[in-house]
Design a protein around this nucleic acid. Structure first.
Ligand code: MN
Ligand code: MN
Ligand code: MN
Ligand code: MN
Lengths: 222, 222
DNA sequence: ACTTTATTTTAGTCAAGACTAAATTTACCT
DNA sequence: AGGTAAATTTAGTCTTGACTAAAATAAAGT
């Protein structure tokens, strides 16, 4: 069994490699920042993971997962997303609370637990924040959505996915009526990186900061 | 937050102090055996826990929980038993599989998780193997049942609790039709610590070894 | 009471995974 | 091209919780 720490490192590297922010290189400092450790600690772990053949390491350049490492990362991500969805669907958690809980549980559940909640949820492929859930074989369908902040004025779009990094932001979105599947129309876009004015589900127009809009992924309608 | 290891030590000490096997003293070696570590390791941890005022330590004599230690032990036991019951009731786990899963999850869940499954289960007071579940305030109703191995010939009794230490034994009991609430009648008791012959729920007579009967706790009828 | 044995503690190591401070490498700017 | 700043690695520590081997203590037997 791999340690909790190793699973988290691999998971974060995977997300950095495939995420929508898509850095060219997955650097030590980026990894350290996401893990909440110092760069020196990250270097230590990187060397260890390279030694275990879980990743490719070019000193001073960055890291990239090898097949074995990616396998573990995807397995951990699968756990995380299935658990999040389960907490939300079966236990009534709000979508801003599931991430913190899943962050610990993902390392503690057995394959039996994974299978049972998978079945109970009807073998879902989309998680609580709209993320794709890797299947049992570690296959995942990476999505490419537009950011709400990039949508043209006048355009309508469906919310498909949100970033789960900031719980407070998720709570705010929820209070605004922004959920998965919500239809929004961009009424106004203030200049100089100003806020958007949105029509959420044909309701009252609401103002939304660009920072938040940047973390909402949508599918434009027609 | 206390480490997983500390929670397990405290939990085991509590169970040794209050269990039905009731040793006079909770010794280092007993604790070490239950934790699956060497006696030296147990001594180390004991000294640390004594330092933290979680237990009373008399070198060469044994340990006893102090109030703060017992609080933590009961909280951990509450987690364990709620999780076991949840796995069994909500996820369809068999009673021989719940312990291993709960052993890890008990350290990973939040108070919110605890509260949600508690509510979902209807605030239960009896766990999957018949154990009492400590309440939110750490109060527990310790039970005293007879062992099936001590029941007189001809006597009938209801199965109230089983030991969850050996998964294979639980599987065996289950296959014999022995569950919580099952009514059994002792037809025969072979001499020289021989097996019992049982009538389980008025079905065919079955033979049961004394070792297994020792781990089944019952309430005699009338 | 003395001796043997079993239990427990002490002493010294180890691995994992973090940290700080110092050294090194890379990148960038003039 | 040389100089500076930022990023990264190295070196050395620390804490946690294990381990083994050796020493100390308690218990039991004659
Ligand atoms: Mn998440
Ligand atoms: Mn995690
Ligand atoms: Mn149990
Ligand atoms: Mn445990």
């Amino acid at each position: 069994m791999l340690s909790q720490s190793i699973e988290d490192y691999l998971k974060i590297i995977y997300k950095l490699q495939h995420g929508s922010d898509a850095p060219t290189q997955v650097t030590t400092s980026l990894l350290a920042e996401r893990m909440g450790v110092t760069a020196a600690s990250a270097t230590n772990m990187i060397k260890k993971l390279a030694e275990m053949n879980l990743l490719e390491y070019a000193p001073y350049k960055g890291v990239a997962l090898r097949e074995a490492g990616e396998k573990i990362a995807l397995e951990t991500i699968r756990h995380h997303r299935l658990i999040e969805l389960y907490l939300s669907e079966a236990l009534g958690y709000s979508w801003d609370a599931v991430d913190a809980e899943a962050e610990r549980l993902e390392h503690a559940i057995s394959e039996e637990f994974e299978e049972r909640i998978d079945k109970m949820l009807g073998y879902p492929t989309i998680g609580a924040h709209g993320e794709p859930i890797p299947n049992k074989n570690g296959q995942i369908e990476e999505q490419t959505y537009a950011r709400l902040s990039d949508i043209e004025r006048g355009q309508r779009a469906v919310v498909k996915r949100v970033s789960d990094r900031d719980a407070a932001m998720l709570r705010y979105m929820n209070d605004m009526g922004l959920r998965l599947g919500t239809v929004v129309k961009v009424c106004e876009k203030a200049p100089f990186k100003g806020p958007l004015t949105l029509l959420i589900e044909e309701d009252q127009p609401r103002t939304l900061g660009l920072e938040v809009a940047h973390h909402i992924f949508v599918d434009p309608i027609r």
